[in-house]
C-alpha cells in the first residue's frame, strides 16, 4: 500500500523554515490538488481514522476568527462543543459505544468498536436546501461548487435554518446574519486548502475534487471491508444514505461505521424545494374551490333578491 511518504517535487522549492511569501498553489503541496475555478471541491471525512484531537475545530476558529460558543464541560464524552452553529463550523462528535450503566467494558473488540469520532461540517450539498430557500440570494454557489453566505447581503430572515436537513446553518445572535462553513472560500481563492483539512493530523479530513475524493472513499471502503470491517459505508455519495430525496450528493461526505443517527446525522434527508409545488398548488386548488362555492352562493343570493 501507500506507506511511503510522498513529497511533492515543488516542496523542494520551499526548504527554509520561515517563508517570506505565500506559496503559490500551496494546496498542491499539502493536499495534492490544484484549486481551479469551475471544478467541484469538497471534503471526504474518513471517521475511522479520526482521533478526536479537535485540531480541525481550532484551525477553523483561528482562520475564520470565530468567537467561542460555550465554555465548560458537557459531560457528553469529550464533546464539549455540542453542535455546529453560527460560530462553530467544525464539530467533533464523540460516541463511547461500550460501557452501559457508566461502567466501562473490560474487553473491547479490535478496531474502534468502543469509540466513534467524527468531525462534522457543512455538507455543501449539490442541491443545497439553504441556498434554494434563501430569498435574498445571499447564499450562493461559488466557482468551487461550494455554498457560501454573503455576509453583506444576508438580512437574517433565518429561512435557511429550517431548510437545512442537517442542522448546520444558524443565525448569529451577535450580528443577526446566517453563518456556516464557507469551505474556506478565501483560502481556496488563494490556492490554499481549507484550514481544517490542512490541520488534520491523521488525514481523516481530506480536501480535494469531489470526484477524486469519491473514488478515494470507495477504495477506502473496499479496503476496510477486506480488512474485516464490513460495516463501513459512505454517507453522502450518490445513492448513499444522506444523499436521498433528490439531494443528489453532498460535496462534504463521510465514511461511517455505524448508523447515521449515532453520529447525529439523518438517514434519509430530502430536498425541501420539492415540496413547494405540491403545497402551493394544493392550497390554491382549495381556495379556488371555495371561491367557486362563494360565487355560486352569492349569485344565488342575487337571483333570489
Amino acid at each position: 500500500m501507500d506507506n511511503v511518504f510522498h513529497m511533492h517535487p515543488r516542496a523542494a522549492e520551499h526548504h527554509q523554515s520561515s517563508l517570506d511569501r505565500v506559496i503559490p498553489n500551496e494546496s498542491e503541496l499539502t493536499a495534492g490538488v490544484r484549486i481551479e475555478p469551475g471544478k467541484s471541491y469538497g471534503f471526504f471525512t474518513d471517521t475511522t481514522v479520526c482521533i478526536g484531537c479537535k485540531a480541525c475545530e481550532v484551525a477553523c476558529k483561528e482562520w475564520n476568527n470565530l468567537p467561542a460558543d460555550n465554555l465548560g464541560l458537557s459531560g457528553q464524552s469529550f464533546d464539549n462543543t455540542g453542535a455546529l452553529s453560527a460560530n462553530t463550523w467544525r464539530h467533533v462528535a464523540f460516541v463511547e459505544k461500550s460501557g452501559a450503566g457508566g461502567v466501562r467494558a473490560q474487553e473491547q473488540q479490535p478496531f474502534q468498536s468502543g469509540w466513534l469520532m467524527m468531525s462534522d461540517v457543512c455538507k455543501h450539498c449539490h442541491h443545497a436546501p439553504c441556498m434554494e430557500a434563501c430569498p435574498t440570494g445571499a447564499l450562493f454557489k461559488t466557482e468551487f461548487d461550494t455554498v457560501v453566505v454573503q455576509q453583506d447581503i444576508c438580512n437574517g430572515c433565518g429561512y435557511c435554518v429550517p431548510a437545512c436537513p442537517f442542522g448546520v446553518v444558524e443565525v448569529s445572535k451577535l450580528d443577526g446574519k446566517a453563518h456556516k462553513c464557507t469551505l474556506c472560500y478565501d483560502r481556496l481563492k488563494g490556492g490554499l486548502e481549507p484550514a481544517c483539512a490542512k490541520s488534520c493530523p491523521t488525514d481523516s479530513i481530506q480536501f480535494g475534487e469531489v470526484s477524486d475524493l469519491q473514488g478515494r472513499a470507495r477504495r477506502r471502503v473496499a479496503d476496510l471491508h477486506a480488512r474485516g470491517v464490513p460495516q463501513a459505508y459512505l454517507y453522502g455519495t450518490p445513492g448513499a444514505p444522506g444523499a436521498t430525496g433528490g439531494m443528489s450528493h453532498l460535496n462534504a461526505f463521510f465514511l461511517l461505521i455505524d448508523r447515521p443517527e449515532v453520529y447525529n446525522l439523518p438517514s434519509a434527508p430530502s430536498r425541501p424545494s420539492r415540496r413547494v409545488a405540491p403545497s402551493l398548488f394544493s392550497g390554491l386548488a382549495a381556495v379556488a374551490g371555495l371561491t367557486l362555492a362563494a360565487a355560486l352562493l352569492f349569485s344565488d343570493a342575487e337571483r333570489r333578491a
Binding site: D79, V95, V161, C164, P165, E170, Y263
Partner: peptide, 13 residues
Amino acid sequence: PTYYGRPALKPAP
C-alpha cells in the same frame, strides 16, 4: 439511537 438526545436539526429562528 440519538446523539445524547441532542437536536439533529435547528428550529427556525
